[in-house]
């Protein structure tokens, strides 16, 4: 059984491909080639990699046929504008890339399952939201950030795919932000600063998912059948000020209006991530735990592992 993993040129995609290669033949693709480090991860796991143009539906279709792909794991979803190409390139990859990929999957005679990486951003951020989001919580406010809009489009395409291919299994995983001892995420960089800027007057509730647990959920979504939408997060919460103290850092509250001036200090977080640092987000993971039979390590545990790996700053 062949699995196609998209987004394998980046950290999470490459590690997903390497994890799945333990039990399946995995073909990995991305718009950009992996860094030497990630290329080594892929090579060690015996994963073949090729670059693709995400807007070229025919090429994607040909790739699915050529490898008789049964399962597509779609990880090529960018949470932040690219250094080259900016927001336009990010939207191209997220929206057009997903549209073309799902179109190719729909036409394919071999594809029986798609697993799509989504995000807790799907719930937006509003003061009228309930404190904890279940998979059925509806979006209450029109989102401001580009990533939220992309996520809504992406999930809309998956619903379309489900209608047109009722025989196939479609799994959507709404991940809270990733944190891991080795993963170089925007949030990891943010918490690694000696002085951590926060938005004055806001102390959001945060949740993280350990990268290893995210990989385990992806592995189970591929090897077992779990159609539907699932929240994936570490149970429990940390509030931002508490997380900063646990990391041995010092919080520097910045008035909301002055944030653009401090963009660099905010580790160049996107609007979506800034909104996250104001409103936070807590997911209900009961459905994941009962359906997948897997409980991710808690948010405090995940954060503790991260802190002991990067070293607390004293």
């Amino acid at each position: 059984m062949t699995v196609l993993v998209t987004g394998a040129g980046r950290y999470l995609g490459a590690h997903t491909a390497a994890t799945l290669a333990a039990s399946d033949t995995v073909h990995a693709v991305d718009v950009v080639p992996p860094t030497p480090e990630l290329a080594a991860v892929l090579a060690a796991a015996g994963v073949e990699f090729s670059t693709v143009d995400p807007s070229d539906g025919h090429a994607l279709g040909a790739l699915l046929d050529e490898h008789s792909v049964r399962t597509v794991v779609h990880m090529a979803i960018a949470a932040m504008p690219f250094r080259e190409g900016g927001r336009a390139a990010m939207k191209e990859l997220n929206v057009i890339g997903t549209l073309q990929l799902l179109g190719a999957c729909q036409r394919s005679g071999t594809v029986r399952k798609v697993v799509v990486r989504s995000s807790s951003a799907a719930y937006g951020a509003s003061s009228r939201d309930p404190a904890i989001f279940t998979e059925d919580t509806e979006l209450r406010a029109v989102p401001r950030g580009g990533f939220v809009k992309d996520i809504l489009d992406i999930e809309g395409y998956v619903r379309g795919f489900r209608r047109r291919r009722p025989d196939a299994v479609a799994t959507v995983l709404r991940f809270s932000p990733f944190l891991g001892p080795a993963a170089d995420t925007a949030l990891a960089r943010y918490f690694s600063q000696a002085l951590v800027p926060t938005v004055a007057g806001f102390d959001p509730r945060l949740q993280f998912v350990h990268v290893d647990d995210a990989l385990e959920v992806l592995r189970r979504a591929v090897s077992e059948d779990h159609p539907g939408v699932y929240n994936v997060a570490g149970p429990g919460v940390l509030v931002l000020s508490q997380a900063i103290r646990r990391a041995g850092r010092t919080a520097v509250p910045v008035p909301g209006l002055a944030i653009p001036v401090f963009a660099k200090a905010f580790a160049n977080l996107s609007i979506d991530q800034l909104e996250y640092l104001m409103h936070g987000k807590v997911l209900d993971v009961a459905r994941l735990i009962s359906e997948f039979g897997f409980r991710p390590r808690s948010t405090p545990e995940t954060f503790k592992e991260f802190v002991s790996a990067v070293g607390s700053h004293e």
């Binding site: 404190a131 904890i132 102390d203 509730r205 429990g236 919460v237 940390l238 509030v239 000020s241 508490q242 997380a243 900063i244 103290r245 646990r246 807590v282």
Partner: peptide, 15 residues
């Protein structure tokens, strides 16, 4: 406890 972040907060943010 406050300096170490060594306290518990529930999922609603209750401290």
């Amino acid at each position: 406890r406050r300096l170490d972040g060594d306290y518990e907060v529930d999922e609603f943010g209750f401290d």
